[in-house]
Design a protein around this nucleic acid. Structure first.
Lengths: 189, 189
DNA sequence: GTCTATACGGTGATAGAC
DNA sequence: GTCTATCACCGTATAGAC
């Protein structure tokens, strides 16, 4: 793959994750990536919006892969999910409270202002929910139940991440993981 | 109370709720509120940050009041919470997917960039959780359990709101409300 | 394809008249 | 206290040389 293009996306991901979409400027992205302004608009003719879209879809692929890999570590889906969410809490602390990818920030900021980014976020959330639902469905949960629980898991993680970022501590998300495990057990088939 | 000052805060709340913190400009706030720029810096010498802080703390007071009022409508805390969350879903649809107050947006955008706003958001989340915890504790839940569940409820609402905003539909949050009710019932004392 | 220089609008903030 | 005029700066985006 093209290195310059990839470095630009990488810089965008990192900055948007930390600061949000509107707080991140093109000049900042350029500075971090080391690329010149001309290259940026050569690779992303539609500018910042296209860039953020690419950052989201690329991040989502990685995140979905990481979800599947983590959920495969345990046969029991509830245990797998609890451990996975706890790991996100660790990761948030290690990254000094940069959120779980640029998705949350962009979704919040562009829900009603950018058709293009809103669509990208919808697809991202759908893919993430799908990964959770598969694990549940493969372990005896009824399909509709699995889908609903996957939505709930995603919401709990997003909300827990927000609380942990705000609290500057992984603990809120870890406590969310505990209660989430209880909830999933009580919904067990 | 001073009308001009209040109109400025009101405009800030509405705009930040819809667009986010960084996407909202001072000129925009001025335009919507009808106030002149001089007045704005007279009432809020510390500028945008102070303004947002005021908007958050004012909104939080109202939100906490609304939570208490809604939870008081039903004796059963689980039913009360489920109905309350469903109402948020209705409200999101009615407001054309402006989130539940400026809190979520500011919390996401300023978690690591503004000490002052981060503190305001922490206090806001604490007050909200407190309102939920009280209702649970008043109905037989053990104090630590009530606090943990209140945190979980807050996370679920925040995450569900994000998903509903993104999906441009109240349904995700409504489904979150359903699962949340199941989870709270299974944790019943 | 890569890079520089620049355009133009909007940003948050201030000074000072009234 | 209220308002206007204006500031210096940064935002995204473009033009055009190489």
């Amino acid at each position: 793959m093209n290195t310059t293009r990839d470095q630009i996306i990488q810089a965008t991901r990192s900055l948007v994750e930390k600061q949000g979409y509107h707080a991140t400027g093109m000049n900042e992205i350029l500075r971090l990536s080391g690329a010149p302004k001309g290259s940026l608009y050569y690779y992303f003719p539609d500018g910042k919006e296209e860039l953020a879209q690419e950052a989201i879809s690329q991040t989502t692929k990685e995140v979905v892969g990481r979800i599947r890999a983590n959920l495969a570590l345990f046969d029991d889906p509830v245990e797998a999910i609890q451990v996975f969410v706890s790991r996100i809490a660790d990761h948030i602390e290690l990254s000094q409270f940069s959120s779980g990818g640029p998705l949350t920030a962009v979704a919040m900021e562009t829900a009603t202002s950018s058709e293009r980014l809103n669509r990208a976020c919808r697809e991202a959330f759908a893919a993430i929910q799908c990964a959770f639902a598969e694990k549940l469905a493969a372990n005896g949960y009824a399909p509709e139940s699995a889908a609903q629980l996957a939505l709930f898991i995603t919401a709990a993680i997003e909300g827990g991440t927000l609380l942990s970022r705000t609290a500057h501590s992984g603990d809120p998300l870890r406590r969310v993981a505990e209660v989430l495990a209880l909830a999933l057990r009580s919904a067990r088939p």
